[in-house]
């Protein structure tokens, strides 16, 4: 088996958003201090790939990172985990809000790289602007079966790979048969490990491959305008429960049990 991992990155939500403007119908302009980091889904997908490699050291891991603001930092972050190959994919135009176009571009970039033994991993949302459509659109575009929202991957004693998804009161373990696309959800079992400092330092000195993919689409999605979302309107004031703990608890009990009942 070989693993191809697609990563998108997102703006770090711990910091204020950098300046973003609509430059053209197919281009966003991002300026200022862009802090692009791996998303929780990206990280989980990377960790699952690393976990599979831990017990199968010969497994080849290739990472394709969507090109964007502060590529260099993000490439270094990924490189510190020592993939066998790492490249930045520059999509032209880069329209991550348009899942159909993005899937088409990614499929064209990856088609020749994948074989019958390939497992393609992608986070269940691809970057900041995916409306949840990219993994399925990519599966259809590449003609790959899709295992969606997978929480965990592991080998069994026969060397077969199984994917886990929780469903209600059941764990659903599906045999992964390559070639296959797996979209990864975040899960406590797949928190990204810290790389070794040695590799972090080596990654700072390395250089990285970059590839351009130029495909556009006539009736795609064009950019209109950017707004700050309106705060959702709700009841205009909150009744704060006063009194000591026992009074607060009693009022709480009343409004949780008698749903819709007035607060005493």
């Amino acid at each position: 088996m070989n693993i191809h991992l697609l990563l998108a990155g997102v703006a770090d939500i711990r910091y204020p958003l950098h300046a973003i403007a609509v430059a053209d119908v197919d281009r966003l302009e991002e300026t200022g201090h862009t802090r692009r980091i791996l998303s929780p889904y990206d990280e989980s997908a990377l960790e699952l790939a690393l976990k599979l490699r831990d017990s199968e050291p010969d497994l080849r891991l290739v990472v394709h990172l969507l090109s964007g603001p502060n590529d260099e930092r993000l490439l270094q972050t990924v490189a510190a985990h020592k993939p066998d190959h790492l490249e930045a994919l520059a999509l032209l135009p880069c329209a991550p809000w348009d899942a159909c176009l993005t899937a088409c571009q990614l499929a064209s970039a990856l088609q020749a790289e994948l074989d019958d033994h390939s497992l393609l991993l992608v986070g269940r949302e691809f970057g900041d602007l995916d409306g949840g459509n990219l993994p399925a659109a990519l599966a259809v575009q590449m003609g790959l079966p899709l295992l969606s929202r997978v929480q965990y991957l592991r080998w069994d004693s026969d060397g077969r790979c199984w994917s886990l998804r929780e469903r209600g009161t059941q764990e659903e373990w599906t045999l992964v048969e390559t070639p296959c696309l797996v979209s990864v959800s975040n899960d406590k079992r797949s928190k990204l490990r810290h790389p070794l400092m040695k590799n972090v330092m080596l990654a700072r000195k390395a250089s990285y491959a970059s590839r351009r993919v130029q495909i556009s689409r006539a009736a795609g999605l064009q950019l209109g305008s950017l707004q700050i979302p309106a705060e959702r309107q709700r009841g205009d004031h909150c009744t704060l429960l006063t009194g000591d703990v026992s009074q607060q608890v009693e009022s709480l009990r009343a409004c949780l049990v008698g749903s819709g009942a007035d607060v005493p």
């Binding site: 997102v10 703006a11 939500i13 958003l17 973003i20 119908v25 809000w97 348009d98 900041d128 602007l129 409306g131 006539a218 009736a219 795609g220 999605l221 064009q222 950019l223 209109g224 305008s225 950017l226 707004q227 700050i228 979302p229």
Partner: peptide, 17 residues
């Protein structure tokens, strides 16, 4: 419209389709 960047901005999108 679609919200992006962790719900911090909303993008309006247009299609001729």
């Amino acid at each position: 419209d679609r919200e992006g960047w962790g719900g911090r901005l909303s993008l309006s999108l247009i299609t001729a389709a």
